[in-house]
Amino acid sequence: MDWKIELIHVPVSDVDRAKEFYERVGFHADHDQQVNDDLRFVQMTPPGSACSIAFGTGVGGSLQPGQQDTIQVVVPDADEALAHLRSAGVEAQGVDEQPWGRFVTFADPDGNAWTLQQLPAWSAGAGG
């Protein structure tokens, strides 16, 4: 039986600002539905990812905007990812060289932190 992570909630304070930011980074806006005055659901997917993020009003868990700091995304090239983020006007830090990979970090306008990891060559064939 396969288990696939498909959606991660990212708490934001301003839905339109968050949507514009993630579009600028390169995420695809899959869904944006204003159900009623109290409920709006936005789903966005990073390029090439099988897992999406969701945010909105009236959705999500107990995390407050800016508290999500546990999302890590694998990228093929940390230098290219850093250059892409900076060219999109995103303050990104990196490249942090570690034995277990090369890392770039950035945050959305609310302070939700993201880590991008380029896997080391020795792990490329190990299923990542």
Score class of each variant (00 low, 15 high):
Leu63Glu: 03
Pro99Arg: 00
Gly101Arg: 05
Val10Cys: 08
Met44Val: 09
Asn112Ser: 03
Glu20Thr: 03
Asp108Pro: 09
Leu82Phe: 00
Ser87Met: 05
Val95Lys: 15
Pro76Asn: 10
Val75Ile: 07
Gly48Arg: 15
Met44Ser: 12
Gly128Phe: 07
Gly111His: 00
Gly94Phe: 05
Ile71Cys: 00
Ser123Gln: 15
Gly127Ile: 14
Val35Asp: 05
Ala50Asn: 07
Val10Gly: 03
Asp38Ala: 13
Asp79Arg: 15
Gly56Leu: 10
Ser49Asn: 13
His84Gln: 11
Arg24Leu: 06
Val25His: 02
Gly101Ser: 04
Ala18Thr: 09
Gly111Asn: 06
Gly58Pro: 10
Ser52Thr: 07
Gly56Asn: 08
Phe55Asn: 05
His28Glu: 05
Ala88Met: 12
Ile53Tyr: 08
Asp16Ala: 11
Val42Ser: 13
Val90Asp: 06
Arg86Glu: 14
Leu63Cys: 02
Asp69Ala: 04
Phe106Asp: 00
Gly111Phe: 03
Ala121Gly: 04
Glu80Phe: 00
Arg102Trp: 02
Thr57Ser: 10
Arg40Met: 11
Gly111Val: 02
Asp96Ala: 13
Asp108Ile: 01
Phe103Glu: 01
Asp16Thr: 13
Asp16Gly: 13
Asp108Tyr: 01
Trp122His: 15
Glu6Gln: 11
Ala88Trp: 06
Leu119Cys: 11
Trp3Glu: 09
Val42Cys: 14
Val75Tyr: 04
Met1Ala: 12
Asp37Gly: 12
Val90Ser: 09
Gln72Ile: 10
Pro76Ser: 08
Gly125Pro: 10
Ser62Asn: 06
Ile5Thr: 14
Asp14Ser: 13
